[in-house]
Amino acid sequence: MNLATAIPAPVRLALLPRMTRGTVAAVDWAALTLPEARRLRELGLDEGVEVELLKGSGILGGPVACRIGRMTVALRRHVAGAIHVNPMGAG
């Protein structure tokens, strides 16, 4: 019996499949600058908040669009990479 499939391991928000919802498991604050961390907090990012990737960064490495709680937010890829998400199954 494989229990790992029942509780999916956290995935970086930048790598979350599109239109898959999840909750924030942890944020690697150390990977962010102080202003980045503060603005991210201001945009409502916190452990347990529901997030969803709306648009990935694409082959050119552009920004990503995601939903944080009720807001749509644009983030650079490295910031979205610092957010670890527990996927909520197929969304």
């Binding site: 980045e36 603005r39 807001m71 749509t72 937010v73 650079r76």
Partner: peptide
């Protein structure tokens, strides 16, 4: 250093 890009999309 670049300050990045983080914006709410209304």
């Amino acid at each position: 250093a670049t300050s990045g890009f983080m914006m709410e999309m209304p």
